[in-house]
């Protein structure tokens, strides 16, 4: 018994030590690099900065090239908030009707949800569609793309949750004279709050961190997103490691805050694939 307990402690401490080296040292490295002067950061050493330049780096990252990073943050925020808001409403409507009403459309919709999860989007034809609609290279165009690509996953989550809401509730509301519209938005939607939160958190992290879609569908510096500015910044000034890492630090903060506050919902959403059946 006693031996087992010491074993447990030893193993636990060893595991913690290994995971600190493998998972935490890289993040400490980001912070250290962001605090160094340009010259010292270029040494790429894992050491406490000889000269602290945190504030200077912060100011320089934000103000350089006509505040491009600040504007990118604004763009990414608009993109994320708009996409996620619309995505939640649109996907919830589908998940709800899909679960409640058997119809031929449901069979088709089931197939499309599956296809949407698996099939990689056809990139250049999507550019072509956006260009035909006059939406290529615009923020609204990218918002519509992000909503579309997030649909399948969100619909699955909503559909699964609606099945836990008793139908008698719908019937009671209808008998009381609620319109279908009111039934959904005033009765069902509030009950779906846990799933709404999960979808919001998971999708906003995903869209905020998205790189490929802005790269293809929103080129140019004018409305670059944070991931794009980080990437461009890397290819333009590879020797300014301090600023590069300050930029990484800045764009890691929003997901980190999300994680701290919504830990449970994120985990529930991202592992929801495991709870099929």
């Amino acid at each position: 018994m006693r031996r087992e307990r010491t074993m447990r402690w030893v193993l636990g401490i060893a595991a913690i030590a290994v995971s600190i080296v493998i998972f935490i040292v890289p993040f400490i490295f980001i912070v250290l690099q962001a605090m160094k002067t340009r010259q010292e950061a270029s040494e790429l050493a894992f050491s406490w900065p000889r000269q602290l330049a945190f504030v200077e780096n912060l100011i320089e990252v934000i103000t350089q090239r006509d505040y491009i990073v600040a504007r990118a943050f604004l763009n990414s925020t608009i993109l994320t908030v708009a996409s996620v808001t619309l995505l939640v409403v649109i996907a919830a409507m589908v998940g709800y009707v899909m679960q409640r009403r058997a119809s031929k459309i449901r069979t088709v919709a089931n197939f499309f949800v599956l296809a949407g999860l698996i099939i990689p989007p056809a990139v250049v034809p999507t550019v072509w569609v956006l260009q035909t609609l006059g939406l290529f290279g615009t923020l609204p165009g990218l918002i519509l793309i992000e909503i579309t690509f997030g649909l399948a996953f969100s619909i699955l989550l909503f559909r699964a949750f609606v099945s836990t809401i008793p139908r008698s509730l719908d019937e009671a509301a209808i008998i009381d004279g609620a319109s279908p519209f009111r039934l959904f938005f005033a009765v069902i939607m509030p009950l779906m709050k846990p799933t709404v939160v999960t979808v919001i958190v998971v999708q906003s992290v995903q869209i905020f961190n998205d790189f490929a879609n802005p790269l293809y569908f929103l080129p140019g510096d004018d409305n670059a997103t944070v991931q794009l500015t980080l990437y461009n910044f890397q290819s333009q000034s590879s020797n300014q490691w301090n600023l590069l890492f300050m930029d990484i630090l800045l764009i890691t903060i929003p997901p980190l805050v999300m994680y701290i506050f919504f830990n449970r919902q994120i985990v529930a959403g991202m592992t929801s694939g495991a709870v099929k059946g």
Binding site: M93, S103, I105, A122, P125, V129, L144, T148
Partner: peptide
């Protein structure tokens, strides 16, 4: 209670930005 037009916004987006590009590809 469960109008089929609830599918509409998602269907339009999916068709225009996913299905059409996939078939066109």
């Amino acid at each position: 209670a469960y109008p089929l037009w609830f599918y509409l916004p998602a269907a339009v987006l999916f068709l225009v930005f996913f299905a059409i590009p996939t078939f066109a590809s």
